[in-house]
Structure formats: C-alpha cells, structure tokens
Amino acid sequence: MPTDQFALSSDLINELLRGMRLRGVEYRRIQAGPTFGLGFAAKPGHAWFHFLAVGNAVLQMEDGTTYALTAGNAIFIAHGAAHQLLSHTDVPVQDIDRLDGAPLGDAVSAVDTGTDASPTPTTVLFSGCMEFELGSIHGLGRLMPGLMLIDAGGQRYPGLVPILTTMEREVSAARIGFAGILARLADVVAAMVVRGWVECACGNASGLVAALRDPRLANALLALHQQPGRDWTVAQLAEQCNTSRSVFADRFQMTIGMAPLRYVTELRMRLASQWLTLERLPIEEVAQRLGYTSQAAFSRAFKRITGKTPGLSRQSRQSAVS
C-alpha cells in the first residue's frame, strides 16, 4: 500500500476507533475441570468476547458448526449470537446465566463449574458481554462478521496477548480499582479487533468497508466525520477527493449505497443520538454542533430520520438502561 494511502486509511480508522463505545460490560472468569459445557444465550445488540487462557475447548454455534480452540485463542461474536463452549461436543450444557458466580467487584464475577477433582483448573476462560457501538461510522457494525476467531499471538493482532493476560491478572488479583482498569483494557481489545478486521479481513468487501479503503472516497469521509456540522455540498465533498462532482456522487452511491448528502444527514443524526443519550448534552447544544440554525429545525430532521423526537429518544434510552 502506498504511504499516502496508508496514512489516509490510518486517519479514518482513528476516527472510527475514537467513536467506538462499549457499554454495560459484564465480565466472568470461568474455571472448569476436564468436562464442561457452557451455553451463552443470544443477546441482540451485544457482543460476546471470550479468551481461552488455559486449556482447550470447542466452540459450537447455533447452527451446529464447531471450532477447536486452544490456549491463546479468542472469540469475538459481534452480533450476540447464541453459542456454546464445551470440553467435548457430547457433554451436557449449562446456561452460564444460571450458574452461581462469586462477585469479585462491580460487574465482575468468578464462575467455577467444578474443579474439585483437581487442585488446578484444566480450563480457564475470560469472558465478557457488552453493548457494542461502532460510533459515527454509519452501518459499519452491521458489516462485521458474526464470528471472529482470533489468534491472539498472530501477526494481525500484535500486542493483544499482553493485554488479555493483564485482564486475566486483574480479575484474579481483584486489586482495588480493577473493574475500572478492566473497562479501559476492554476498549483497547475491542479496538484492536476492529482494526485487525478492517486492515486484513475485508479487502474485497463492498459498501462502507470498501470506502474506508478507497482513497477516492476516503478524504471525503474523513472530512465529513471531522466536520459534521459544516454545510456540505456534493461539489465540496468532491473537491476533497480531487474529482468531479458527478464522478464522486456516482462512486459514493455505488460503493456506500446512498447519496452523499443522505449520508451526511444520517451521520449527523447518529452523532446526535450519541450526544443526547450517552453524553447527555442539551438539545440546543447538539443542534448547534451539527450546524442547525434552530433547535426546531434540528428536531424536525432528527424525527424524520429516527422516527422519534430528541427528547423521546433520550427518555427511551434512560428507560432501557434503568
């Protein structure tokens, strides 16, 4: 990849990762003996992450597909699909939510599935479930594969093993403040997973992923995400890519699947939802940030795209969390 294209892609990935959010993270340290079967129910809107620190396991998806795992392997299930982690495919399965867990701290628990026969567990898993939001890059989360098998020690994820090992150590030691450290480390792990996917796993992908890797569109996307409140025209966006208005508009529509100005509007409303519900910004401030001349104009645009008023959207989010 030429240097200038790599630098541009790096800027876009930085923009993506800055907007990524993990919410409602729940962690488990799972210790198991030679025989175990753990079931993880489907959780739409969430992601599952598992790191096999010690031992071997079999991952079985809902359709029956199985994958052999060894120590150092990790799993990222972006859309919260149901799955099982097993010692063997013919063992009885227990729902992980029905197993008693000893609380180790805020949103962290230890689960022991029966290691009494051995002083040392033969399998140690680090597991997390979280709401996973890929920030302002419209629709990127939907493009991620449902299952990502990660060789934590491989070249695609340099530096991942020490972070995962540190997470496991923090859970085991349960030192003061470890839950906050886990939350920050989880952000880093998720960012590494997303970066590895964009860099290496989607070279032939269509849609937004292809646009992220296309220097003929990347400048415009970067400008949009850095200045979402600017009163953009298609001609101005085309200038960012040193191409004509018609060529840019056609390529944008063909690659991303929507017209440039429609993308601008949806980007603004996606940012508005985050600022209103997560950062709790006043509606008037959100409207100003996004370039609207009045709160009323912003509210009309927000309802047209999301189907809700800004105030109702904030209340719905509060109700879902409480």
Rank of each mutant, 00 (worst) to 15 (best):
residue 211 A to L: 09
residue 135 G to L: 00
residue 198 V to Y: 00
residue 126 F to N: 03
residue 32 A to S: 12
residue 230 R to Q: 12
residue 2 P to W: 01
residue 180 G to L: 14
residue 240 Q to W: 07
residue 173 A to D: 12
residue 116 D to M: 14
residue 3 T to I: 15
residue 319 S to P: 00
residue 69 L to Y: 01
residue 15 E to W: 05
residue 98 R to D: 14
residue 198 V to A: 02
residue 23 R to L: 11
residue 205 A to N: 08
residue 220 A to C: 06
residue 195 R to N: 09
residue 318 Q to M: 10
residue 17 L to Q: 07
residue 315 Q to T: 06
residue 271 L to P: 01
residue 102 A to N: 05
residue 320 A to M: 05
residue 117 A to I: 09
residue 60 Q to N: 06
residue 145 P to E: 04
residue 241 C to D: 01
residue 309 T to K: 05
residue 185 L to K: 15
residue 303 K to D: 15
residue 308 K to W: 15
residue 177 G to S: 10
residue 141 G to T: 08
residue 216 R to M: 12
residue 204 N to L: 11
residue 184 R to N: 11
residue 266 E to W: 03
residue 47 A to H: 00
residue 199 E to S: 07
residue 222 L to N: 12
residue 174 A to D: 03
residue 245 R to K: 12
residue 5 Q to H: 15
residue 3 T to Q: 14
residue 273 S to Q: 11
residue 301 A to E: 14
residue 54 V to F: 03
residue 217 L to W: 08
residue 115 T to E: 13
residue 244 S to V: 04
residue 315 Q to L: 11
residue 62 E to P: 00
residue 140 L to Y: 06
residue 179 A to H: 08
residue 7 A to F: 06
residue 104 L to W: 05
residue 57 A to Y: 02
residue 52 L to G: 05
residue 45 G to F: 05
residue 76 F to S: 04
residue 28 R to I: 01
residue 214 D to I: 01
residue 143 L to M: 14
residue 309 T to G: 13
residue 27 Y to M: 10
residue 21 R to T: 08
residue 93 V to E: 00
residue 45 G to S: 05
residue 225 H to Q: 09
residue 200 C to W: 04
residue 182 L to W: 07
residue 223 A to P: 13
residue 34 P to Q: 01
residue 57 A to D: 01
residue 35 T to H: 14
residue 311 G to D: 09
residue 318 Q to A: 09
residue 299 S to M: 06
residue 158 P to E: 12
residue 149 L to H: 08
residue 322 S to T: 06
residue 84 Q to P: 02
residue 186 A to E: 10
residue 286 V to Q: 03
residue 259 A to S: 08
residue 228 P to W: 09
residue 140 L to N: 07
residue 294 S to L: 08
residue 87 S to W: 05
residue 61 M to Y: 07
residue 58 V to A: 00
residue 6 F to K: 15
residue 264 V to A: 00
residue 79 H to W: 02
residue 196 G to M: 02
residue 193 V to D: 02
residue 244 S to I: 03
residue 113 T to L: 12
residue 190 A to I: 13
residue 282 P to T: 02
residue 86 L to G: 10
residue 76 F to P: 09
residue 99 L to I: 15
residue 71 A to H: 00
residue 204 N to A: 14
residue 128 G to Y: 08
residue 228 P to R: 00
residue 199 E to Q: 13
residue 260 P to I: 06
residue 9 S to N: 13
residue 288 Q to A: 14
residue 218 A to T: 04
residue 285 E to I: 02
residue 73 N to Q: 10
residue 256 I to Y: 02
residue 217 L to T: 03
residue 165 T to G: 13
residue 321 V to T: 11
residue 237 L to V: 02
residue 157 Y to K: 01
residue 295 Q to W: 07
residue 299 S to G: 11
residue 116 D to T: 12
residue 35 T to E: 15
residue 61 M to W: 03
residue 105 G to Q: 04
residue 153 G to V: 06
residue 283 I to G: 01
residue 268 R to T: 11
residue 174 A to M: 06
residue 121 P to D: 04
residue 40 F to Y: 13
residue 141 G to S: 08
residue 271 L to K: 08
residue 218 A to I: 03
residue 31 Q to C: 13
residue 196 G to L: 01
residue 32 A to Q: 10
residue 294 S to F: 09
residue 5 Q to L: 08
residue 102 A to Y: 05
residue 1 M to G: 15
residue 159 G to M: 06
